[in-house]
């Protein structure tokens, strides 16, 4: 069977009467078409642009040019750090939301959601006010006599990480929270009753059980980080180059869309690979 015949057959099955889930498939169709026309096709066109002239040169450059390898590596590192910190900070928050009494849970959700609902620009500017040379922290330290010259906190990789973690942490917290919430508390009791001290309960039972949530939260945060633009642009002071910043430059400043397309494709590929790896990591859990 040729590929196209196979495709046609699968198409016939998907939409045909033979498929018991046909109704659901049809229900999902408008959304799929919507995404296809407004998202997938334009993106595909943009990424085919580099080879539209019958040359693969833009792709070769994107994959071998020193600048682009450095920037992609840089982007990858930042995304990895953001993911790590989102985990370290977000996990306890998700846990707090899970076990807190209702009033505190409400307050906690509020605190997590308020920034989530605030525009990313506003949130990022808030950090400018806090971390700046004349920002809240520096002013406080200066007036307390702890430091004599303002600390340079803004416009650095740590500032970018901070801003990104702040923006992205909810994306980690919610999947983890929803998994934590579904964990049978009897499992925790069982582990304790069987002789596990609290840290063992956490490492051997609780953490593994929340792993699916951790992985999907981490995947979300990582993927969103890979394409982040505003925060690194504002808090990095131009000293933190992420691939999206570079793509923007090629689109807007150089009008070199072919190369921008190739870079986007590389970004998409790296992201998909990361996604694939995480999926693969999660497959270990499939058995249970």
């Amino acid at each position: 069977m040729t590929a196209s015949a196979g495709l046609a057959a699968s198409f016939r099955y998907t939409f045909g009467r033979g498929n018991p889930n046909r109704r659901q498939v049809l229900l999902g169709l408008p959304t799929v078409l919507f995404l296809l026309f407004l998202f997938a096709i334009p993106v595909a066109r943009f990424m085919l642009l580099p080879i539209a002239d019958g040359t693969i040169e833009p792709y070769v450059k994107a994959l071998t040019g020193e600048l682009f390898l450095l920037v992609i590596w840089n982007t990858f590192k930042i995304a990895a750090y953001v993911t790590l910190f989102s985990f370290l900070l977000g996990y306890p928050v998700a846990y707090f939301l899970t076990v807190a009494p209702p009033v505190w849970r409400l307050i906690g959700f509020f605190c997590v959601l308020i920034p989530f609902w605030t525009s990313i620009l506003v949130r990022t500017y808030a950090w400018l006010v806090i971390l700046g040379r004349r920002g809240i922290i520096n002013e406080t330290l200066l007036s307390a006599g702890i430091i004599e010259t303002p600390l340079a906190m803004l416009h650095s990789t740590p500032a970018v990480l901070l801003g990104m973690v702040h923006v992205l942490m909810p994306f980690f917290i919610f999947p983890v929270y929803s998994v934590m919430q579904r964990i049978d508390t009897n499992l925790i009791s069982a582990a304790r009753g069987l002789g596990a001290p609290d840290w063992r309960v956490f490492l051997s039972v609780y953490l593994p059980l929340t792993l699916p949530g951790v992985l999907s939260g981490a995947t979300l945060v990582f993927i969103l980080s890979m394409g982040f633009f505003i925060t690194p642009a504002l808090l990095g002071g131009g000293r933190v180059t992420m691939i999206s910043v570079l793509i923007e430059q090629y689109v807007n400043t150089f009008l070199d869309w072919q190369f921008a397309g190739a870079l986007s494709a590389v970004l998409l590929a790296v992201t998909l690979i990361a996604y694939g790896l995480m999926k693969w990591a999660m497959k270990g859990d499939k058995k249970w």
């Binding site: 049978d184 009897n186 499992l187 009791s189 069982a190 582990a191 304790r192 009753g193 069987l194 002789g195 596990a196 001290p197 039972v205 593994p208 059980l209 792993l211 859990d285 249970w288």
Partner: peptide, 17 residues
Amino acid sequence: AKRNMGMVFQNYALFPH
């Protein structure tokens, strides 16, 4: 953890992982 009692729960509470 220190009581040394074996407990079987209403829903077994086996560790799924």
